[in-house]
Nucleic acid binder design. Structure first.
Lengths: 224, 224
DNA sequence: CAACTATAGACAGTTTCACTATCGATAGTT
DNA sequence: AACTATCGATAGTGAAACTGTCTATAGTTG
């Protein structure tokens, strides 16, 4: 398969494929001479994954490279693959200032309640606490207690995730499943949440009629 | 409060505040003369919201403006506020080509099973179907069936969301809760999911020891 | 009240990111 | 032989989110 065929097969333009090659997102094809190389199905599949990570997952090219490296690194323990995939989403808020003691304690209370046991460096711990701090800062501390229900939901999701991963035939397939499940799973969940919110909302407030229309009525306040 | 005080109170630099004023994210202060204006607590709060939307929610400035307009527009039905907030996250994948009939049917089957009733234009319907298509394209159709468990989790989350919203004293507070809950809620959920994944993973595969370490071992494959 | 700092508003400049475009040398194709 | 495709290198583009500079004025301080 030549680069032009790879391009039509994957729907990615040749300049973009070259860009991904330069950025080490896509392994180079087998060189047949100084300026010819052959590509195969694995390249098509890799491009599909790259586009899914960028378009659906909203990852940056750099984050996608980290994730892809993890997939390729077959002898990486599964937990690390999970960590890399999760970290890639909504790019590392790790470096910034840490969360308050109150919020961290609140997160810890959830772990106790749910009997969750994780290592202290789990990035979710700091991430969750940091968001709880924002709830307070926004003047909506009542949102903090949502975390208990969210934790129950997260437990359900994580068990489903791991069940599917466990059914994979080999480690390479497991890693791919972890990545696809983690990055695209977020998008599915967000979509379902949107559906559920509308359902529950109309269930609780059975409005006469004009609920959920296209929001065409709000004025456009863009700069002049 | 002058702009310099607003800056220190909110932690946002003056040039950035001016930028937000230009972009209509932040209402201008009360003008006391041609080149003086007074700001108050509402401006501090608004800046806190803006930074939360941009930093935690990962919204673009344009998406944040839509969300903020919805919050300010007090007579907007709650469902529309939900819709705007959800649409702002992972910027409108609406325009692109639509999903396959199979995936849309699979999503419809979830609605039937969960007895969810929503309007046909709910953006979650197309969004979920589109991701299912990606699962197939990636060669991982087994991930499609995750949707049933995800839907159960989404139901739990949505009921919790609506319960908190319903407790708000007035419509303005409800709108703010919807926005904060939707945008920041995604971040909390993602963090909890990360925690739950590690817990469930170590529960299922009680590895001897070296699970979940800092992924320092993967080589850096950045371009030379 | 003079010196100095701060402010509003206008507008230009910067940085990062994800591509795109061009080029020269060579390879394959008709 | 003429023509198109490809490789690798390098440069350019456009959007996004700030950031910096400038001018005319306003407030503040010694």
């Amino acid at each position: 398969m030549r680069i032009s065929e790879l391009s039509t097969a994957s729907g990615v333009t040749i300049p973009t494929i070259k860009f991904y090659l330069r950025e080490n997102l896509l392994p180079s094809g087998e060189a047949t001479s100084a300026n010819q190389a052959r590509y195969d199905e694995s390249h098509v599949k890799r491009l599909t994954l790259i586009r899914a990570l960028l378009e659906i997952g909203g990852l940056s090219v750099a984050a996608a490279r980290d994730v892809i490296d993890a997939v390729d690194n077959a002898d990486l323990p599964l937990n690390q693959v999970f960590g890399i995939a999760q970290r890639a989403i909504s790019g590392s808020n790790l470096s910034t200032n840490s969360a308050s003691a109150e919020s961290r304690a609140r997160v810890a209370s959830v772990l106790t309640e749910r009997k969750w046991h994780v290592t202290d460096d789990n990035p979710g711990l700091a991430g969750a606490a940091k968001v709880l701090d924002r709830f307070s800062a926004l003047g909506h501390p009542e949102l903090i207690d949502l975390i208990d229900d969210y934790a129950l939901a997260a437990d359900i999701v994580a068990r489903a995730d791991l069940r599917v991963v466990g059914k994979q035939p080999n480690v390479a397939a497991m890693a791919e499943t972890v990545v696809a499940g983690t990055v695209l799973g977020d998008a599915v969940f967000a979509a379902l949440r949107r559906i559920a919110q509308e359902h529950v909302s109309s269930e609780m407030h059975p409005a006469p009629h004009p609920l959920s229309q296209a929001p065409a009525s709000i004025p456009d306040r863009r700069k002049s």
